[in-house]
């Protein structure tokens, strides 16, 4: 194969992979802190896209997309915290007991609710804000400016996220709750507040992905469905609960999809990820970074 073309495919895969990471990190983060899987992750992605679109077209104007981004992320995070407080908090019957099926039922119901709400509010149409930036020539590959912005945005957000988790008191509290809820509780950490913040941050990452990708993949009521699937694929590839695993898994998935769709066939683009997933499960059942088990 033509090496230039191959480089182009690899670059295209890495750019997409970088953006997949945001989704995966959001899912795995919520899972590790709250020990629940948020099935509505894709819907928060979708809402992020709509908020970004509305902010740009109805208020800020296409030039001020960069201002709209943090606003969209904060809106989604605030919505997430509201959802957590009103709908998910009751999942913790006592201080520690969890009703797992409760979280599943609530978040799956939320996907239906949010999608229908989007249809009611905006109709079944696709929307897209204008590209954030003109195309960029990256070596042999001309890349859409919005993709570059989305990739850089994802990198900045992930960096920021890592900084908060590694270097701040909030991060310390989040990690302690993720690793041992009882231990965190004994230390005097308000678990319900940390859960709320964690959910807000996690869905905020999904919302950021949605807002960043609004001009790339369009905004429409079903836009979140696939991103949830991809997010989960990455998590299984990387290992549940592992942040570095999510990041490596995101890039891997992007690459496999990009190369698979040109080297084999694009009809099965979304199958390549599953192929990778099955291969990994066969070789390393806990995922790349997974551990045998974690203490509850």
């Amino acid at each position: 194969m033509d090496p230039t073309l191959l480089t182009q495919y690899v670059l295209a895969g890495l750019v997409i992979g970088g953006i997949y990471c945001l989704m995966a990190v959001g899912i795995t983060f919520i899972y590790s802190v709250m020990k629940m899987i948020n099935w509505a992750m894709g819907e928060f992605y979708m809402i992020g896209g709509y908020v970004q679109y509305v902010l740009i077209t109805a208020w800020l104007g296409p030039q001020r997309w960069a201002l709209a981004l943090p606003l969209a992320v904060l809106t989604v995070a605030a919505l997430g915290m509201l959802v957590q407080r009103l709908l998910l908090q009751p999942m913790f019957a006592g201080q520690l007991e969890r009703l797992d099926e409760y979280a599943t039922i609530v978040t799956i119901s939320l996907t239906v609710l949010f999608r229908n709400l989007a249809v009611v509010l905006f109709g079944p149409y696709q929307f897209s804000p204008r590209d954030y930036a003109p195309p960029v020539q990256l070596g042999p590959l001309p890349i859409n400016g919005s993709r570059v912005v989305a990739f850089l945005g994802a990198a900045v957000l992930l960096g920021l996220f890592a900084l908060v988790v590694r270097r701040t008191w909030l991060g310390l509290a989040l990690r302690s709750v993720a690793q041992n809820r009882l231990g965190a509780l004994a230390a005097g950490i308000n678990l319900s507040r940390i859960d709320m913040l964690a959910f807000g941050i996690g869905v905020g990452l999904a919302g950021a992905a949605g807002a960043l990708l609004a001009p790339v993949f369009l905004v429409y009521p079903e836009s979140g469905a696939l991103s949830t699937v991809k997010g989960f694929e990455i998590i299984v590839i990387g290992g549940l609960g592992s942040l570095p695993g999510s990041i490596v898994g995101g890039f891997l998935l992007g690459l496999v999809e990009s190369l698979g769709s040109v080297l084999i066939s694009p009809s099965f683009r979304d199958v390549y990820g599953f192929g990778l997933l099955l291969l990994l499960l066969a070789l390393r059942p806990t995922g790349l970074w997974g551990e045998q088990a974690r203490e509850a």
Partner: peptide, 12 residues
């Protein structure tokens, strides 16, 4: 409160 089970954090 020092509970009977572990109250420390495996990755810290």
């Amino acid at each position: 409160y020092v509970p009977q089970g572990p109250s420390t954090f495996p990755h810290m």
